[in-house]
């Protein structure tokens, strides 16, 4: 469809632009269609001009819509329109996407995974294996494959103590955040103790965050059981996929709510996702993820709410983005970054 771009005359370009415009008016146009369109658009400045012209016309048509519609025939039946409107947006099925892709694990974790002993044989011979400790510094994340094949992606400034026993796989994480993709093994539950809550899994994928007094769990796949730490007989709360549980240390109640696993897992892609999060939480996350202290100048700044996605690619770009999207000014000093309310 894109044609021989270099040689296309204005008529051909106009034709192609109209084709793309009409194609993309259809809400069934897929992400790939848009990528193809981008390729066409980037091929020549004349393509962009032709397309922009159609956009201008399209907008102009809105302004004269009533007059044009009146000048044309009587409108199509209102019932058809209502029926159409009553239904929510419809689009064709997109191919199912795997969640945390195996490829990502393999690609990013290959180096580490290779250095860790893997296999049932090893585990069977560790009736009371020693504690393995994994630590990440601020600004550093790490992917691990544990001896049972379970995968752990450890966020910055986190510590994990792992001990595999005959009847249980035990992990302690008193301060940290990690995504777990736990290998299915009904005979040996996987137990994660954060000091506040204990999470029991058989085989599933989820993110746990224990920072200061706040515990948060988001489950992407499977089912997870949560109990207060040190209370193995307490009735567990079961958290299914798509749900999350949060608890504040000392509180009598845990809150279960629909979770956004994608947001909770976003750090594994180098992104931080916020929806009306207080700025002091954002600052604390940035301190851990950037490896540079980030603080708020005062309590009022700390209470500002932030919604947005911050990509952890480049520190300066990230701070610029934060300044653009939140009413703060980032002051860079020798001791780190201080956020001031604007």
């Amino acid at each position: 469809m894109t044609g021989r771009r270099d040689e296309d005359g204005p008529m051909e370009v106009a034709q192609q632009a109209a084709h793309w415009f009409a194609r993309l008016l259809d809400d069934a146009a897929t992400g790939d269609d848009w990528l193809d369109f981008e390729t066409w658009l980037a091929a020549a400045p004349s393509h962009q001009a032709a397309y922009a012209r159609l956009e201008g016309l399209w907008v102009e048509l809105d302004e004269v819509a009533d007059a044009v519609a009146a000048a044309l025939d009587a409108p199509v039946s209102l019932d058809a329109r209502r029926a159409a409107r009553a239904r929510p947006t419809l689009s064709p099925p997109a191919p199912p996407r795997s969640t945390l892709s195996r490829r990502a694990w393999l690609a990013a974790g290959a180096g580490l995974a290779a250095s860790v002993a893997v296999g049932a044989f090893t585990i069977a011979n560790w009736p009371n294996s020693p504690v393995e400790t994994y630590v990440t510094a601020a600004g550093q994340t790490r992917q691990l494959t544990l001896a049972d094949g379970s995968k752990v992606w450890l966020n910055a400034a986190s510590r994990l103590d792992v001990r595999f026993q005959r009847g249980a796989r035990r992990v302690q994480m008193a301060d940290g955040e990690a995504v777990f993709d736990v290998t299915h093994d009904p005979s040996r539950p996987f137990l994660i103790d954060t000091g506040d809550r204990e999470v029991r899994v058989v085989g599933t994928e989820f993110n746990i965050r224990q920072r200061a007094d706040a515990f948060a769990l988001s489950v992407r796949r499977g089912l997870v059981e949560v109990r207060p730490s040190g209370a193995p007989d307490a009735t567990p709360t079961r958290v299914p996929a798509g749900q999350g549980l949060s608890h504040r240390k000392g509180s009598a109640q845990a809150v279960i709510a629909a979770a956004e696993p994608e947001a909770a897992f976003a750090w594994t892609r180098g992104q931080l996702v916020y929806s009306a999060a207080p700025m002091n939480q954002v600052a604390a996350d940035l301190s851990r993820s950037l490896g540079t202290p980030v603080q708020v100048a005062d309590a009022a700044t700390g209470r500002l709410r932030f919604s947005g996605v911050l990509a952890l690619d480049d520190k300066d770009a990230l701070l610029r983005r934060l300044e653009a999207f939140a009413p703060v000014r980032a002051e860079r000093g020798p001791g780190g970054v201080v956020l001031h309310r604007r």
Binding site: D27, A29, T30, G31, W34, S91
Partner: peptide
């Protein structure tokens, strides 16, 4: 949340 979106990528571009 009740809206059904089956073509999320296309939806975002749109």
């Amino acid at each position: 949340p009740s809206v059904e979106v089956r073509n999320a990528a296309g939806y975002l571009y749109r």
